[in-house]
Computed example of a mutant assay.
Amino acid sequence: MTVLPRAFAWQRTDTTGGEFATLDDRRGLHAKGVAFAADNSLYMCRYELHTDDGWATTRLEVTSEGAGWLRSLRMERAAGRWRVTTGEQGDLERVLPGAPFAGMEEPDRLHRVLDVDLYNSPLTNTLPVRRLGLHRAAPGTQVTIEAAWVLLPSLAVLPVDQTYEVLEGRRVRYSSENFTAVIELNEEGYVTEYPDLATLA
C-alpha cells in the first residue's frame, strides 16, 4: 500500500460533512480521500485519483455507500479516450428516488475532458487550477474547460463547461451553468475557502 506524504482536511459549511485526503503532488497528483455528507442523502465516499505530470486526470476510482446500497465507478483515460465502468449493490433509489444511474452511456462525449470534478469536493477544483497554472496567472486570466462532473451519491457522470477567472488575492471566480462562486486558494492552488460549501481545516 502506497504511503502518501501530505494530507488536507476540509469541513463542510453547508451541511454536516467533510473531506480528508492524503496526496503526493511532486509529479502530478496521486490522491486518496474519503468524504461524507448529509445533504441529499446520508452517504460516504472513498476515492483514488491519478493525474499525469501535467495534472491532467488519467484515472479516478470512487465508491459511494449508504444504508442498504453501494455504488462504484472507475474512469480511465488513455490515448485520448475515456473508459467508464460501474458497479452497484443494493438499491440507492429506495432512499433517493429518481437517482440517476452511475457512469454514463456514451463515454466518447468526454473526448475533450482532461479534468474530473467530484461533486462538492474542494480537492478536485485544484486539478484545472494546477494544470493551467491559474494559481500563478495574472488577474483577469479566464479559461473555460469541459470537465467530467461526478455526482454524489449516484456516481452519474456528466460533461459540463466550467469557467475559471483569476482574481486578485489568490482567488478565482468559478462558474458553471447558473452557478458562480469566488474560491480562495493557497499559494499551491489548493482550496482554502469555498463559500457556502467548505473551508480548509
Results as ranks from 00 to 15, higher is better:
R136V: 10
L114K: 07
Y119T: 02
T124A: 08
V129I: 14
A138D: 10
L114T: 09
D115V: 03
R112Q: 09
L152S: 00
N125T: 05
N120C: 12
G133A: 14
V116C: 00
L132Y: 13
G140A: 11
W149V: 07
V129C: 13
T126D: 00
A138N: 03
G103A: 04
T126H: 09
V150C: 02
D115A: 12
L134W: 09
L114V: 08
D108N: 12
L123V: 08
E106D: 15
G103S: 09
I145T: 08
T141P: 01
A148I: 02
P139W: 14
T144C: 11
A138E: 13
R109N: 02
V116Y: 01
L118M: 09
S154G: 04
A137C: 01
V143P: 04
E105H: 10
T144S: 10
L152N: 10
V116L: 06
L127E: 08
L132G: 00
G133F: 13
R112L: 10
E146F: 09
M104P: 00
A147E: 09
T144P: 08
L118W: 01
L123M: 08
S121E: 11
G133D: 07
L132P: 08
A147I: 11
A138C: 09
L152Y: 04
M104L: 15
L155W: 08
P122M: 05
A148M: 05
Y119G: 11
D115M: 08
A138V: 12
S121P: 12
S154T: 10
E106V: 15
V113A: 03
P128L: 13
V150R: 03
V150E: 02
A147F: 04
D115W: 00
H111Q: 15
G103Y: 03
A147R: 01
A137P: 05
A138Q: 15
W149F: 12
V143T: 08
L123F: 07
P107M: 07
L132R: 12
R112N: 11
G133V: 13
A137V: 01
P139N: 12
T141H: 02
V116A: 02
V143G: 03
L123C: 04
L152D: 05
R131C: 05
L152H: 09
P153R: 01
H135Q: 15
P139I: 10
W149H: 04
L123Y: 06
R130P: 06
